[in-house]
Design a protein around this nucleic acid. Sequence first.
DNA 1: ATAGTTGCAAAGGCTTTGCACCGCG
DNA 2: CGCGGTGCAAAGCCTTTGCAACTAT
Lengths: 137, 137
Amino acid sequence: MKELKKLLDEKEVKPTFQRLSILKYLEENREHPTADMIYEYIREKVPTISKTTVYNTVHKFLEKGLIKELTITGQEARYDFVTDSHHHFLCEKCGTIYDIDINCPHGLPGQNMVRGHKVEEIHGYFKGICKNCLQKN
Amino acid sequence: MKELKKLLDEKEVKPTFQRLSILKYLEENREHPTADMIYEYIREKVPTISKTTVYNTVHKFLEKGLIKELTITGQEARYDFVTDSHHHFLCEKCGTIYDIDINCPHGLPGQNMVRGHKVEEIHGYFKGICKNCLQKN
DNA sequence: ATAGTTGCAAAGGCTTTGCACCGCG
DNA sequence: CGCGGTGCAAAGCCTTTGCAACTAT
């Protein structure tokens, strides 16, 4: 928790109770939650929190590069605590997003131009049926 | 146009005028349009068309594997006529999506399992500032 | 006739905006 | 005080749904 506060200080984000709670949740549970999942989870600790604050907070975090937004479902955005760059697997049945630690050659640091375009983010993901859902059949 | 009709016949999709117009547009202009862009474009040829029909049609095409849906902007879905698998580059400034023909090793045909999950689609994309927007500064 | 297609209108879901209140420096 | 943060309510945008009219066998 102390380190998270320091992290917010470094990024010049006022470490309010709401923001710290949300950051802690994202850091501890890497389940790529939706805004609503964050809201429901935090509500147990901070019953007065509003969805607006959740949105305000994740936008602030995005802006400061603390988290990344995943839009791979096409429905609700999912939020991912930033660590080393990695890929994702989205299960089309249960909606779970798994981290996939594969080093794609195009993800090498330093290679930041593609066809004359300046690359700022690289995203890779798979869609399919996950291990668990395969077993259930 | 003849081949597009045949394409729909093969997929057991009734080749109505609306559907053919939309498929033709998607096949000729690979600009990854939104539903609204399709609507506005087709409206010039088929003034009575509705947004509902555009949605009905792209969903039918998706179901039959004629097109793919891109959700990389997090806002409106974009539609992509299906060709060989390729990657994309999204410009965060102008919103243009460029095709990037790179063979990512993980996209090799045959490799259809990852960490025990069954892979059905592989997506890769870059985000950044495109060539054109770079020049404007 | 019959099944499928079309398109208007309304509803739905996620996100953003407007604004008043609050709290901390 | 004053500025930023919070949260309620409302609006906004994209998409889906309900349903009636239509079309082509």
